[in-house]
Amino acid sequence: MSIILLLIRKIVFIILSFILYLFVLYLFPYPFSLINVFFAIATMHLFLNESFAVVWYILLVHFFVELYSTQPFGVIVFSAVISVLIMLWLYQHVFTNKSWYTAAGLVFCTLLIFRILYLVALFILSLFGYATMFSFSSIYYSFAWEICLTTVCSIVSHLILTKSFAELQRDRVRYI
């Protein structure tokens, strides 16, 4: 029973974070509508839980995103999963603490890797005719804004959540 309740809680959390993403996307003015809520939440999730649950979270929310995207199915999911696995590695080996600058660094690196993988995947698919190539110059600004604003958002959320969660005030990660 407790497992079922836990599962329901996780599903509700995923749906609510997707609705939050839509809220930011539709109601915030440009360029704030580009804030990638999922990666900001994923970073806090990683700091609080330090488990692979963050990979499941990213996989599922980006599966939802794929349902509303015109890009070939799989591009977003693969890019997101690979980038969050790299985020876990960075957290374990590079940024080994839970400070606000770690949150910023993790979000910055993860989003940068996510968008690079995304463009590479689209480029490869376009070679096989599954996608149409387009001008990159029109999207550089969007990606740059997305990365910068999401980084700022993660710093702000970290500073706010530090007041409520003692776990975020620890200097080192648990397994070290």
């Binding site: 692979f52 199915f73 799989g74 693969f78 374990q92």
Partner: peptide, 20 residues
């Protein structure tokens, strides 16, 4: 507690591939 290993990465990528 987690430790990121190659097997885990392959597992998650396989799950993503299965979803697609």
């Amino acid at each position: 507690m987690y430790k990121i290993r190659r097997k885990t990465c392959i597992l998650f990528l396989s799950i993503a591939a299965a979803v697609v």
